[in-house]
């Protein structure tokens, strides 16, 4: 009887929580008209979407390419060196995005250490697509690295040892065993990194006000025209940010059911 009561309370709490969390999305949909959406799209929205999508795509690819090996080393190497690296990676993870932006500005700005090097190469690292990508990477890569490390940790080393003993090289084992088994965790990390990158605002607004990404465009619309102008753009951002991570979640459900 007690167990049943506990289950009912948990169910009610879960439903209440889901309603509370999704209620603002309902409010957003309630306050948007098709004409408002079309106006926002033609009034800078489309350009912002293009900037956001292209920069996020580049940032996510860079995050996966650089973050996956680091995640693997964090999971598989137990040495002091890798524990120090792990500890240091918590700093960008925990740093407020606005502070990341300020530090990037100091570092990559026209008078910063690296900024001067890039300037000499005729490469502008502020107010450019490159700056947006860098800011997105800074905001999102720690999330991916820790997710990848957790995903690789969950792959039983025994599988890799078995693969070696069956005559397969470490590279073959990585491709055929480790990565496929870590894929649910890696894809979840990728989804999280994508969501962080596409919604990156704090660091981006400092180092790359122009060209406007969608979050920056929303902020500009809010400042200059108020909520009615910002709502359609917010919906566009949701439509851009949600499908990929949600598809990954669905894919994980299916995969878990099959394995």
């Amino acid at each position: 009887m007690k167990h049943r009561l506990g289950a009912v309370i948990a169910l009610v709490l879960a439903i209440t929580l889901v309603i509370l969390l999704l209620l603002p999305v309902g409010a957003l949909l309630d306050n948007i008209s098709f004409s408002g959406l079309a106006l926002a799209w033609s009034n800078g929205g489309m350009d912002a979407v293009m900037v956001s999508m292209s920069c996020t795509a580049v940032a996510v690819v860079a995050i996966v390419v650089f973050g996956t090996p680091v995640g693997w080393f964090l999971a598989r190497r137990k040495s002091h060196f890798w524990r120090v690296i792990e500890f240091l990676l918590y700093i960008p993870l925990l740093m407020p995005p606005l502070v990341v932006g300020l530090l990037l500005m100091y570092f990559l700005g026209p008078y910063g250490w690296f900024g001067r090097v890039f300037s000499a190469l005729q490469w502008t690292m502020t107010n450019s697509a490159s700056a947006i990508v860098v800011a997105q990477i800074y905001e999102a890569i720690p999330y991916y690295i820790f997710s990848a490390a957790a995903a690789f940790s969950q792959v039983d080393v025994g599988f890799e040892r078995t693969s070696f003993s069956l005559g397969r090289t470490p590279w073959y084992t990585l491709r055929k065993i480790t990565i496929p088994l870590a894929l649910p965790g890696l894809s979840a990390g990728c989804a999280m990194a994508f969501a962080r990158a596409v919604g990156a605002f704090g660091a981006v607004v400092v180092i790359a006000y122009y060209p406007h990404t969608l979050p920056v465009q929303i902020w500009v619309a809010l400042q200059e025209q108020g909520l009615p102008a910002a709502f359609p753009l917010a919906l566009i951002l949701l439509l851009m940010a949600l499908p990929f991570p949600l598809l990954i979640v669905l894919w994980r459900y299916r995969r878990d059911a099959r394995m």
Binding site: D156, G158, R161, T162, S165, R168, P170, L181, M259
Partner: peptide, 20 residues
């Protein structure tokens, strides 16, 4: 000699069949 070149197959208590 690396593990994968020895030709020593190893079977343990847990079968470790690749689940995917």
């Amino acid at each position: 000699m690396p593990v994968w070149q020895r030709g020593f197959a190893y079977v343990e208590q847990t079968p470790r069949l690749f689940p995917h």
